[in-house]
């Protein structure tokens, strides 16, 4: 494992910690899209079905369990915690699941490497992860007074994707037979989706102003 991959994973982990801190600490999930969180849970479930059959390393197994556990907890808090669920912006979080899930499913069926249930679901998870942030970005646009934790959450998540691209570039030049067009394409698409957000994030940071995305 190279330093970019490790840093990327740590950013991912940190983004989840920041989100959980916000949700449990201030008992509010204001500005957080439940749809994006549920899509991430679906991404992790469909991707990590091989958790007990395909052992790579203790690190990988532990991280998979952590991602499954924390994303379940986040969805649970937002849906069922009697205080936290009151702070969810349900009326604003209107992005349609089907708009993201259906194309991902069709593409997975059309492009899967082999046609086994595990492989098709894994491919589906790669496509879905690329677009799962979209409900969150739309909600962010509609949210007035985005708090720091929410802004930092999305920033950390975007950084994780950016670092994974550096990881792939590094692996491309250091490993033989490291050719993963599907993963690379989806990863680049996913990172491009964040570009607009990054622009306004840095702008607000530079001007020392509160983050606001133009509608």
């Amino acid at each position: 494992m190279n330093v970019f991959r490790l840093a990327g994973d740590m950013m991912h982990l940190l983004s989840i910690v920041v989100l959980l801190l916000k949700i449990t600490g201030i008992k509010s999930c204001r500005g957080i899209s439940l749809k994006t969180q549920e899509l991430y849970l679906l991404v992790f479930i469909t991707r990590y079905l091989d958790i007990f059959t395909n052992f790579v390393s203790l690190y990988n197994t532990v991280m998979k369990l952590v991602f499954l556990g924390t994303s379940s907890a986040i969805v649970y808090y937002m849906r069922y915690d009697r205080i936290i669920k009151l702070t969810y912006d349900k009326e604003q979080d209107t992005f349609k699941y089907l708009l993201l899930v259906a194309p991902s499913a069709v593409l997975a069926l059309a492009t899967s490497h082999v046609y086994t249930v595990l492989e098709v679901l894994w491919t589906f998870s790669i496509y879905l992860e690329a677009v799962a942030i979209m409900p969150q970005l739309v909600l962010l646009q509609r949210t007035q007074n985005i708090d720091n934790l929410t802004g930092n959450y999305v920033f950390l998540l975007g950084s994780y994707r950016g670092l994974y691209i550096l990881n792939w570039i590094y692996r491309f030049f250091t490993e033989k037979h490291y050719r993963q067009w599907l993963v690379w394409t989806c990863g680049v698409v996913q990172t491009i989706i964040y570009c607009d957000f990054f622009y306004y994030y840095f702008l607000s940071w530079q001007n020392n102003e509160k983050l606001a995305l133009p509608a």
Binding site: S57, N60, K64, F67, H113, V114, Y164, Q180, V183
Partner: peptide, 10 residues
């Protein structure tokens, strides 16, 4: 068959 995409990332 062609090599399966690497599943060593998260």
């Amino acid at each position: 068959s062609a090599p399966s995409p690497a599943k060593d990332e998260l």
